[in-house]
């Protein structure tokens, strides 16, 4: 049931991101809600759950907007896995920690995305604008991460209350 809930939330965020993200352009860039959701899931539920959400999110993006499966799928899976793995010994729930992890995760996503896109010939010379895209998008994701983190915690409480504890 937990998995179904997470997939539904991810699906909703993906739809919002792809259709309503016109409203949230900031300096020509937009925050990546499903990626932040995957990163927050990794923080709350561990690297495997985060990687699974990242994989599904990346797969959807590759199918809907890409020319092959891989760039988003690989980059988002690794980013979420690393964030989950790196947050093992951290005190979870503190806003600053969530924000730092979201920044790091987005940075890692962009790094691996560029590597895959470069190796497959999709991006010819990506490094000149790597920082001009990566830093602002990481900052944007960093600022929305506490909100999404709270959302993930609420989803957890909802699942615990209705499915794990009540029944």
């Amino acid at each position: 049931m937990r998995s179904v809930c997470y997939v539904l939330v991810l699906g909703a965020l993906f739809l919002v991101q792809t259709t309503l993200s016109n409203f949230i352009w900031i300096f020509g860039l937009k925050p990546d809600l499903p990626l932040v959701f995957a990163l927050c899931t990794a923080v709350v539920n561990g690297e495997k759950a985060g990687a699974a959400i990242g994989l599904l999110n990346g797969f959807l993006e590759d199918i809907f907007f890409g020319r092959f499966i891989g760039a988003n799928t690989i980059a988002k899976t690794i980013a979420a896995y690393l964030v989950g793995y790196g947050s093992h010994n951290l005190y979870k729930g503190r806003t600053i920690i969530t924000m730092v992890l979201a920044f790091f995760g987005t940075f890692m996503f962009n790094f691996f995305f560029v590597i895959v896109a470069y190796l497959t010939g999709e991006l010819v010379n990506p490094w000149h604008q790597f920082f001009s895209i990566t830093i602002p998008s990481s900052l944007l994701n960093m600022f929305i991460s506490p909100l999404i983190y709270r959302g993930v915690v609420k989803v957890e409480r909802f699942i615990d209350y209705y499915f794990d504890i009540k029944y």
Partner: peptide, 14 residues
């Protein structure tokens, strides 16, 4: 236009 690439690297719409 019914959807936009959510990423910041490519510009693709549906």
């Amino acid at each position: 236009v019914i959807a936009r690439d959510p990423g910041n690297w490519f510009n693709v719409i549906t």
